[in-house]
Deep mutational scan, measured.
Amino acid sequence: ELVLALYDYQEKSPREVTMKKGDILTLLNSTNKDWWKVEVNDRQGFVPASYVKKLD
């Protein structure tokens, strides 16, 4: 499943990933309501769920 980055996000820990507004990311896990695991540029990590939106 793919998600769209709604905002820029700068990683604050090694478990997170940086994304730019408009990026298309692969959603790996959305079981946590606050932090979703995504893959971007061959890196996996977490981003705030409120910063991304699922693409239909």
Rank of each mutant, 00 (worst) to 15 (best):
Y7R: 15
N32F: 09
R43D: 04
W35M: 06
Y9R: 02
V38K: 00
N32C: 10
D23C: 08
D56L: 11
M19P: 01
K54R: 14
D8K: 03
Y51I: 06
P14H: 10
K53Q: 13
Y51S: 09
K12W: 05
Q44I: 14
K21A: 13
E39V: 12
V40I: 15
Q44K: 09
T26L: 15
L4Q: 12
Q10V: 14
D42L: 10
S50Y: 09
D8Y: 04
Q10P: 06
M19S: 00
P48E: 02
W36D: 00
K21C: 09
E39Y: 09
D42K: 12
W36Q: 01
D56V: 12
V52I: 08
K54D: 04
S50M: 11
E39K: 12
S50A: 13
E39N: 08
L6F: 03
N29V: 08
A5I: 02
S13C: 10
L27R: 00
W36P: 00
L27M: 04
F46V: 07
D23K: 04
D8M: 03
T26K: 15
E16V: 05
L6S: 03
L28A: 03
V38S: 01
R15H: 13
L25W: 03
I24T: 07
D34M: 14
L55F: 10
K53I: 15
V52D: 01
F46D: 04
M19V: 09
Q10D: 14
S30G: 12
G22T: 02
E39T: 10
N41Y: 14
L4D: 00
V3D: 00
V52K: 00
K33D: 11
V3G: 14
K20N: 08
T18C: 06
V40M: 15
T26V: 15
K37Y: 15
R15Y: 12
P14F: 09
A49P: 05
K20A: 09
P14V: 10
V3A: 12
D8V: 03
S13D: 11
K12T: 12
K21Q: 09
L6H: 03
L28I: 14
N41F: 14
K33G: 10
D34K: 13
F46R: 04
N29L: 09
T26D: 05
Q44A: 12
Q10N: 14
W35T: 02
D56N: 14
V47C: 03
Q44S: 12
E16H: 06
M19A: 02
N29Y: 07
Y51A: 09
V3K: 00
Y9T: 00
V17C: 10
R43L: 06
D23V: 05
N29H: 08
K33P: 14
L25R: 01
V52R: 02
V40F: 15
L4G: 03
L4S: 05
K12E: 08
K21V: 08
S30V: 07
D34R: 13
D42H: 13
G22C: 10
V38W: 00
K53Y: 10
L6Q: 04
V40G: 13
N41M: 13
V17N: 03
V52Y: 01
N32H: 11
L27Y: 02
K21S: 08
K21P: 03
V38F: 01
T18M: 04
L4H: 05
T31W: 10
D34H: 15
D23G: 04
D42F: 12
Q44T: 11
M19E: 01
Y7A: 10
V3Y: 13
F46W: 15
V3P: 00
K53C: 15
K12F: 06
G22V: 01
W36M: 04
P14Y: 10
Y9E: 00
F46Y: 15
V52M: 06
A5H: 01
K37G: 05
V47P: 00
L55E: 04
G45F: 09
E11S: 15
N29D: 15
S30W: 10
D42P: 06
K20Q: 10
R15W: 15
K53R: 13
L25P: 02
R43A: 06
N29C: 12
P48H: 03
E16P: 05
K21D: 02
Q10W: 13
G45Q: 01
M19G: 00
P14S: 12
V47I: 08
L4V: 15
L55Y: 09
L28G: 01
Y7K: 14
Y9W: 11
T18S: 15
E1S: 13
L27T: 02
S30D: 15
W35V: 03
K53V: 15
V17Q: 03
E11G: 15
K37W: 14
K12N: 10
V17I: 14
R15T: 11
N41H: 15
Y51R: 06
D56I: 12
D23I: 05
D56S: 13
S50T: 10
L27D: 00
A5M: 02
L4N: 02
N29I: 08
K37L: 15
